[in-house]
């Protein structure tokens, strides 16, 4: 499916989304509160079948955070990028780990590195960092006087 066709399909699911034209793949900007339902429909839709979440990450833009989901379909091989703006003081978003199981680990990583709270996540604990770690290392304002994180 081309970018244009994808746009049409996605607009039928959720008319409130907007698109960003840059980049290799179609970028879809979604509001955080629409995300869960939208994700379920992307996964279930017979025309889209986005059954494979191949990358889940977060970017700290200092003023806000952006969740970035890279989705592809193993049947149709079309890709989209979902971007969701989050508040940087108290970021929270619905989990998608029940739709794409791989999100469970990736969300735990984002949780400890960026402090994003995933609602209804089955096991939201620190995965990589020790339990008593303070701060969110991948945020831009994170400083660590002991460990070398900048060169």
């Amino acid at each position: 499916m081309t970018k244009e066709e994808l746009k049409i399909q996605i607009l039928t699911i959720l008319p409130t989304v907007s698109f960003e034209e840059t980049g290799e793949w179609l970028q879809v900007l979604v509001a955080a509160e629409d995300w869960k339902l939208f994700a379920q429909q992307l996964h279930a839709s017979a025309e889209l079948q986005f059954d494979y979440l191949f990358c889940l990450t977060c970017v700290d833009w200092k003023t806000h955070l952006t969740m970035v989901y890279h989705l592809t379909s193993t049947t149709y091989r079309h890709n989209i990028v979902i971007k969701i703006k989050l508040d940087s003081i108290n970021p929270f978003i619905e989990t998608v780990s029940d739709i794409w199981r791989t999100a469970e680990f990736h969300e735990r990583e984002v949780f400890e590195m960026f402090g994003v709270n995933f609602l209804h996540h089955p096991d939201l604990r620190k995965l990589i960092l020790p339990d008593d770690w303070i701060g969110y290392p991948l945020r831009k304002n994170y400083e660590d006087p002991i460990n070398m994180i900048k060169l």
């Binding site: 995965l127 990589i128 020790p130 991948l138 994180i149 900048k150």
Partner: peptide, 18 residues
């Protein structure tokens, strides 16, 4: 239940200054 991080070097953070 995997517990990770014993060899975590935060390559992603390091790369931001490379």
């Amino acid at each position: 239940e995997p517990h990770l991080g014993y060899i975590h070097r935060s390559i992603e953070k390091m790369t931001e200054s490379l």
